[in-house]
Design a protein around this nucleic acid. Sequence first.
DNA 1: CCTACCGATCGGTAGG
DNA 2: CCTACCGATCGGTAGG
Lengths: 201, 201
Amino acid sequence: MATVKKTDAASATRLRILDAAARLFRERGYGGTSQRDIAAACGMQAGSLYYHFASKEDVLAEVLELGIERPMEALKAALDELDESASPKERLHVAVRTHLHALFTQGDYTSAHFRIMHVAPMEVQSRSVAVRDEYETMWMTLLKDLKKAGELRGDVDLRIVRLFLIGGVNMTLDWYREGEYTLDQLADQYVDFMMNGIAAN
Amino acid sequence: MATVKKTDAASATRLRILDAAARLFRERGYGGTSQRDIAAACGMQAGSLYYHFASKEDVLAEVLELGIERPMEALKAALDELDESASPKERLHVAVRTHLHALFTQGDYTSAHFRIMHVAPMEVQSRSVAVRDEYETMWMTLLKDLKKAGELRGDVDLRIVRLFLIGGVNMTLDWYREGEYTLDQLADQYVDFMMNGIAAN
DNA sequence: CCTACCGATCGGTAGG
DNA sequence: CCTACCGATCGGTAGG
């Protein structure tokens, strides 16, 4: 579990290890990162990692899980904060904005999740699928609510919409640098593209 | 150069090595694939690879380059085949369809390109940037032609459109299995989403 | 393209 | 959390 704690100090060290691992996995990939790399980034010796984690795969599994868990928690919190009168369209807008911010504030974990999930052994992947399924369900609910409210065309496949939208949003990780647009401005554009398209009226 | 040849036999072996490497890089990542893994998949010994490639990084560089070169060549060919009277919108449609097909017929190379490009040493990455820039320019041209033809809203940033669209299309690599939709049907939906959006009229 | 091998580095462990 | 170390595997080379 990502939330298990022993002592505060030990759990703080765990987090330092995970932070370093997430960053290195993102930058160099899983196979390109050694336990010695991770330990060095934390100012400790390679063998010491094994006091906190049973194996390199365990570190990976926890990074991957946090990489999807944190955006999901952020989305839950953001939707909970919304006024009950918020329209389905506003809720989708908030979701895109929240996901985009999570990609960058939890960037190392979430980048690592989307980049190296597929090289993880199946048993490691399976430790993330429950959270992932839950997150996908939340998105499907947002889209279904939009449809029920009569705001969507009747002929679109919501699953394909979700995959296309998340793909376009996640791509931001690969190119975004602060400057021209803020993340909120990007979120505005993505929702606008998705809802209204880019064709002239 | 990807097109250099010595003898036919040597170049056929090179290609077998590259095919195996692309598949393994895609499945296990770069650091998770050893030269011995690649050699074994080709039915040869690890040392023999060095008759064809100077280093593991050289194999990587060529896989990455082919992973973007092939979709680009496919796009060029597809656009050249189009009737001159083809509208900008038809040309964009053909581009999306062609890119999507290239993702799957050259899947190992192109997947490897998009998945492990960022873990490659900068000097290896730089061997692909020229092709990548050219490919991006082709997409920008398609979008600019659409705009010139008056078919696009005036307020959209074409660069963001390109990144969002390619991101959504590339995401297909992560989930597509034959069955519900053909690739052509997916391309139709993506272009429809991008041009017209999903909002009710 | 193979055999045989190099030094370096890997994930992981024992004992403290 | 460190020291010291294990066997295995790594990328790469010499010589054929």
